[in-house]
């Protein structure tokens, strides 16, 4: 009998479910758990997803984490072509966030005022372009009030309130699909597109999520994140991540 799913495995399932219904698009997962999720989705519900090796190739197969070279190559995807696909729109990115607020604005640029940062981070990277061009989700491995903030210091990824204020060209292709953290799953399907708790992961108390979030969360319809099937667990444990890298990113 299969042992119970760990928190990391629940997170992997939640990340896989981000891609539900996406079809033949480029999945761009940033980070280990989103990568695991995208690969699981491709092996189960979304076989048409395109996956990159994070360098310049599209992977024909679905290799285990850290072993991209075992896969055949099905396409060439240097950065300039990634930019083309961003603008074209057939892409779903899962980014990280140093800060994220209730409307889904994300910051990976710096902490403090942009002119005088107290902590410089990566920079805007592709977040402004990603968020106004195609579906975007976020993965937060350590849910805390420092990350889930009332208002981000710098808007890198565009949230719903800022997209609306910027006008129709910013809103036309804008969609923040979901946020997955180590505690739960969130979306923006509320009347004002503010963040809503969709589900807590098994073993997580709703109060913990509320306390670790700096802004009020709509928790009315929250349930529990689903358990993986036995087949999904087998794929995670034996095929995609036999070395258990997922457990290092999210502890149970």
């Amino acid at each position: 009998m299969t042992s119970a799913a760990t928190r990391a495995e629940i997170c992997a399932i939640a990340c896989a479910d981000l891609f539900a219904g996406d079809g033949e698009i480029l999945a761009s997962p940033m980070g280990l758990l989103p990568t695991l999720g995208a690969r699981l989705a491709k092996l189960t519900t979304e076989p048409d997803l395109l996956l990159s090796d994070g360098e310049a190739y599209l992977l024909a197969d679905v290799p285990e984490l850290g072993n991209n070279s075992s896969s055949d190559v099905e396409g060439w995807l240097p950065y300039r072509k990634v930019f083309d696909i961003v603008a074209h729109g057939r892409r779903h990115v899962v980014m990280g966030a140093n800060q994220i607020d209730r409307y889904g604005n994300q910051n990976i640029s710096c902490i403090g005022a942009h002119a005088h940062p107290t902590r410089q981070l990566l920079g805007f990277r592709g977040a402004p372009g990603n968020t106004v061009n195609h579906p975007t989700s976020y993965w937060i491995p350590r849910h805390s009030t420092r990350v889930f903030v009332e208002s981000v210091d710098v808007v890198s990824g565009v949230g719903y309130d800022r997209a609306r204020a910027a006008g129709s060209s910013a809103q036309r292709f804008h969609q923040i699909r979901r946020v997955v953290s180590n505690l739960g799953v969130f979306d923006f399907n509320t009347s004002d597109h503010s963040m809503r708790l969709v589900s807590t992961h098994p073993g997580v108390q709703q109060d913990d999520v509320v306390q670790q979030t700096s802004f009020p969360l709509d928790t009315r319809d929250a349930g529990e994140t689903r358990q993986p099937s036995d087949e999904e667990l087998r794929l995670l444990r034996e095929v995609l991540d036999p070395r258990g890298l997922r457990e290092r990113e999210v502890s149970s």
Binding site: A127, A166, S169
Partner: peptide, 13 residues
């Protein structure tokens, strides 16, 4: 012209 930047803090910085 480019869509990227709209709504973000790129224009304000």
């Amino acid at each position: 012209p480019i869509r990227a930047g709209l709504g973000s803090d790129v224009p304000s910085t």
